[in-house]
Design a protein around this nucleic acid. Sequence first.
DNA 1: GCTGGTGATGATATCGATAACATAGCTTAC
DNA 2: GTAAGCTATGTTATCGATATCATCACCAGC
Lengths: 346, 346
Amino acid sequence: MAKAASSRPADMQAPTMVDVANRAGVSAMTVSRALKDGGRVSRITREKIMAAVNDLGYVLDQSAGSLSSRKTGFVAAMVPSINNSNFADTARGITDELESTGLQLLLGYTDYTVEKEEKLIEAMLRRRPEGIILTGGAHTERVRRLLKNAGIPVVETWELPSKPIDQVVGFSNEEAMGLLVKTLARKGYRKFGYIGGTTSRDTRGSQRREGFVRAIEELGLPAGRLVSFGVPPISIEQGGQAVVSMLERWPDTEAVLCVSDLSAFGALMECKRRGMKVPQDIAIAGFGDYEVAAFCHPGITTVNVDCYGIGRQAARRLIQIIRGDEKKHEQEIILTGYRVVEREST
Amino acid sequence: MAKAASSRPADMQAPTMVDVANRAGVSAMTVSRALKDGGRVSRITREKIMAAVNDLGYVLDQSAGSLSSRKTGFVAAMVPSINNSNFADTARGITDELESTGLQLLLGYTDYTVEKEEKLIEAMLRRRPEGIILTGGAHTERVRRLLKNAGIPVVETWELPSKPIDQVVGFSNEEAMGLLVKTLARKGYRKFGYIGGTTSRDTRGSQRREGFVRAIEELGLPAGRLVSFGVPPISIEQGGQAVVSMLERWPDTEAVLCVSDLSAFGALMECKRRGMKVPQDIAIAGFGDYEVAAFCHPGITTVNVDCYGIGRQAARRLIQIIRGDEKKHEQEIILTGYRVVEREST
DNA sequence: GCTGGTGATGATATCGATAACATAGCTTAC
DNA sequence: GTAAGCTATGTTATCGATATCATCACCAGC
């Protein structure tokens, strides 16, 4: 039995399908068919071909293939950030869902800005992805035009955009934060504070803040105290700094709600460092249900969001459209769940 | 002035370079040149072309381009995981470094297994990346052969493999953990415990554990107590469970070192939950210098590693080789720094 | 005035695969 | 026994860009 080619001299061209075909004594087309699952090739021929592939160390060239078949097998996805964030779970969900389909993910980090998003999308469209997943509903006009021209399915996630481009997988950040306020109000808290980054960049953060303000109004509570601190995503450290600033201005604040669990954690640790008792002296709640929120002491009350599921469902919807090849696919808005998780911090 | 094409009917083919060329009254080749930076095209012609590009909503097709130029503009990178982990920072470093070069990243998650790594690498080689970045030095034989045949530069990161494939950017996990032990021994701790995942999958974890054991031996301290718990990457929750198990078996343990800050954080919180004083009753240290370690209370002593820098340097080295087109590039081993960061937990 | 250089552009072949159609051989139905 | 159908395979054209070589106009230098 032929041994697999161990190596190739550096100056030698990598083998092509024709090389494999010659070695196996068939045509290139037959090799192509043998290398796809569905290809109808006799068992004997397939074995000869596989032997040749192995001998030559042949690896299929998909760039060539996709030029010809007009299917690149790429899906693009934009997330604001991947470090220490819920979006890592979403990216993971997308990847997992794509895994069995042979589609490959092109992942981009927008750094929470539509300008970076635009640049990334331009770059990725040059790779002719078959579909694209975005975070949020805020995009430049140019991006909307580019995506329209590209003629590929688009899924916006993590929000419910007022003017959706195409598909949506998300939830109302406003309602979710409102629910948190109501849950805490029912426990008797009345003087609420809110901590978030300066808002223009992070639309989800802004929506949560609006949900906070509106819920306070609806409940007829004293006006919410708002602290904006730092550029989103607001870090653990900034959460700590923000709570200090909050307590200086409004020392009688009873409950502090944070735009994310990371800032809530920072606020919590800063309060403990200052010898305050949580929740007796002050209650703290976050958003996102990060692992730290569950296992820190005291545990942080938060809103659980199905980050991973958002990724999976977004990818699944995209695959449906791509594979189904519905020329004229329906717009679908998939709502993902959220729920308040009460822990010791409130 | 012509207005940009707002949209294209769904059944219409996307415009190609030839369409742009016709509209601009030049040849396709000239369009191609105009769209590259270096292309030498007169200012007038370039403006006509750009106008045509804009009118038609033309987007370059890189799959086609790379087939012809034999340069795909892809770089592949494998990380064990991206959720809640140092590798997210490394991935970020790679991305940032690539940004200005026009190279695009194909990112894969190996889930800490060489089998998954092999599958991913096979898939990615079909995209003909111009270079590849790996985490660690443990790979299947097949992967080594595939990479050799591919004839592209390879960078292994985060470790110092005993049998490097090509380039290396990393540090000795063994030494780093040894340094942590020695630092704490100098403070007077004698009875050390170590918490890590079951070792076969996570080679960096294993190396840290070995470094721990060796340092204990060298210092002539009582044999280290080793608790293995869960499948890497070991979570916050598992860190908490592991410290319980440690205290049950060896209640007199003075200092617990953890394979990562996440498990250290879990251990710390569990101890606090049980009313123990840290570091008086027990000292706790981690590895990796995550943000939580710095800002939790008490702060966690740890080993700072330049995660982001590893990514940047790995990418930079790759770019050097790719762009320099050194047919016969030298092997280089780039050491990245680490340092013990002492905080209140020890 | 002729040679040689330079800058801008065009023509053609080609990258490596796959779609689409063609063909040969064999089986099945009535 | 022959038309119809099926399976396995081959042939040819093509996907959309770029490498390479060719061409042409123009200018400088002697």
